[in-house]
Nucleic acid binder design. Structure first.
Ligand code: MN
Ligand code: MN
Ligand code: MN
Ligand code: MN
Lengths: 226, 226
DNA sequence: AACTATTTTTAGCCTTGCCTAAATAATTTT
DNA sequence: AAAATTATTTAGGCAAGGCTAAAAATAGTT
């Protein structure tokens, strides 16, 4: 790994990693194009270059996957991103719907010194403001307690929100208004065709399916032992 | 001022500003090329573009100067840079020889929100770790007490270091080793052909001319009233 | 005033990362 | 299995921001 990568290259690797995490299969040019807001032809171009650099394995028409050195770079960028999000949130008074945008640009620009200083000041945290895991200094992802999207849980289950799988500003803002914030306690009232009915404090909501699938909780103790 | 400028464009404007500050004349292509570590031909190219955008006034063979809108952008970048330097120094434990490099990249990337948060946390400071003035929210440069390069002062004058006109890492590190840091008290012992002889605490140094011309002090009270 | 040396500009090229349009491969439907 | 649809790649271009080499303007010297 000789020369520093461009911002674009880093973003390609990061998003290949994130897409691989979800689907487990090779990442398609189309999926990447959509994520990166770029045309598929541009993706093909870049995949060839990254493949040339041995950062991905790329078989034309079959999609791409990270090599181990590509994965390290993706994890490094991810560590920057998530540390930045938490730093902005904890040390600079940003709310969780504001951090992503700023971190998206800063992640490519900060030094290793800056990364280390943030980690130190934050007490080497394991999760960002959305509950996303932060790779440690050795780029190992932390293994936390099991978490479940609320779409997958039975009525009666209670737990605290520990991860939200969206970075969309307006969605996050909406969740805040509904008190659906990190660590908020909620109860599954019922799974229905149009969504998940839940209780948060005294309030009840019917969360549309697509949104609900992005909200994850860790189940409460007495539930777990059952 | 429609669309956001590129990092390069911002750096050109910033350095045109800084060079204008020193010499008062139009900034030459050569001087800019040297500053920006770029060939003069590249500078000519960019000057034409910036001129097209009405950010500079450019007469071929005569150099360039900022228009008022160009100057505003330069001051904005400068504010970012100097706030960042101070933030890194005060809040993140960087030393004054480390801040410049990091700020150089971050200055183009942070949001106005980030700028405002830094200013707030730092108590709306007026000077960065090298004593360089920080433009305020309205991009006005603060007017401080008079400062003098130690090359311009008579023997016997004492004062505190209030500005250092270099960003060179190794030079700054050297100054630190000599206790020639911000606010350090020093006395001019003599102006000599090879430099300025000074006293700092119990120590005496002969500071080479070129270095000495970058060290500025504000004279002590009893000197001023004399 | 004529040379000489230095600056600056012009012209042409390169790389990066994106685009569109057209061609080709893969997948799905009938 | 053929046809139709969708996904992907190829080919050709474009804008930014560098570069080199050559031409032209300016400044300095005799
Ligand atoms: Mn990014
Ligand atoms: Mn996040
Ligand atoms: Mn810069
Ligand atoms: Mn400074």
């Amino acid at each position: 790994m000789k020369t520093k990568l461009s911002e674009s290259q880093e973003d390609y690797l990061k998003h290949i990693f994130l897409l691989s995490e979800k689907s487990d299969e090779n990442v398609s040019a189309n999926a990447l194009a959509e994520r990166l807001k770029v045309k598929p032809a541009s993706v093909t171009n870049m995949l060839k270059k990254l493949s040339e650099l041995s950062l991905i394995e790329y078989v034309p028409y079959k999609g791409a996957s990270l090599t181990s050195s590509g994965e390290l770079i993706a994890l490094e960028v991810l560590r920057h991103h998530r540390l930045l999000e938490l730093y902005l949130s904890e040390m600079m008074g940003y709310s969780w719907d504001e951090v992503h945008e700023e971190a998206e640009k800063l992640e490519h620009v900060i030094s290793e010194r800056f990364e280390a200083k943030m980690a130190e000041q934050l007490g080497h945290p394991t999760h960002d403001p959305h509950g996303d895991p932060i790779p440690d200094q050795n780029l190992k992802l932390p293994s936390g307690p099991a978490i479940y999207p609320i779409t997958s849980l039975k009525a009666g289950v209670t737990g605290a929100i520990t991860r939200v799988l969206t970075q969309d500003k307006d969605t996050l803002n909406m969740l805040t208004r509904l008190s659906l914030v990190m660590n908020a306690e909620l109860e599954i009232i019922a799974q229905e065709r149009n969504g998940v009915r839940i209780r948060v404090g005294d309030e009840r909501f019917l969360i549309p399916l697509e949104l609900a699938s992005n909200i994850c909780i860790s189940k409460n103790e007495f539930e777990k032992t059952k």
